[in-house]
Computed example of a mutant assay.
Amino acid sequence: MRKVTAEERELFLAALSGRLPVRTVRAAIKAVAKKAAEQAPSKAKPTIVNGKRQASDDEVLLFLEAIGLRPRPAIIPAAPKAPPPKPHPKLAAKPTGLDGATKKKLEKGEIAPAAKLDLHGMTEAAAHGTLITFLTAAHRRGDRLVLIVTGKGEAGRGVLKQMVPRWLDEAPMAKLIADKRWAHKRHGGEGALYVYLRKPARG
Results as ranks from 00 to 15, higher is better:
184 H>D: 11
127 A>V: 07
73 P>W: 06
129 G>Y: 06
134 F>T: 09
101 A>I: 01
132 I>V: 15
72 R>N: 08
136 T>G: 06
169 D>P: 04
65 E>H: 14
117 L>K: 05
55 A>N: 14
115 A>C: 06
183 A>S: 15
171 A>H: 12
13 L>W: 05
22 V>N: 11
85 P>L: 00
41 P>T: 15
158 G>W: 00
128 H>I: 03
99 D>E: 05
122 M>V: 04
146 V>M: 05
115 A>I: 02
88 H>S: 12
5 T>C: 05
59 E>P: 02
142 G>C: 03
47 T>R: 15
54 Q>P: 03
31 A>K: 02
98 L>W: 02
61 L>I: 09
107 E>S: 12
3 K>H: 12
201 A>S: 08
39 Q>G: 11
181 R>C: 15
148 I>N: 00
172 P>S: 04
149 V>A: 10
198 R>D: 13
54 Q>A: 15
43 K>W: 12
28 A>F: 11
201 A>Y: 09
37 A>G: 09
187 H>E: 13
1 M>K: 04
152 K>E: 12
186 R>H: 09
57 D>N: 14
59 E>G: 10
113 P>R: 00
75 I>K: 14
18 G>R: 13
154 E>P: 00
169 D>T: 14
72 R>M: 01
110 E>F: 07
126 A>E: 10
85 P>M: 04
123 T>W: 13
146 V>I: 03
42 S>G: 12
74 A>Y: 05
60 V>Q: 13
174 A>I: 00
7 E>D: 11
152 K>Y: 10
178 A>E: 00
12 F>H: 04
75 I>G: 02
17 S>T: 04
161 K>E: 04
86 K>E: 00
40 A>Q: 14
186 R>A: 15
65 E>P: 06
164 V>K: 14
167 W>C: 12
101 A>K: 13
190 E>S: 12
161 K>P: 00
64 L>S: 03
117 L>F: 12
202 R>A: 15
75 I>W: 03
42 S>F: 07
158 G>I: 09
16 L>V: 07
54 Q>V: 15
94 K>V: 02
91 L>K: 02
28 A>H: 01
46 P>K: 09
63 F>P: 02
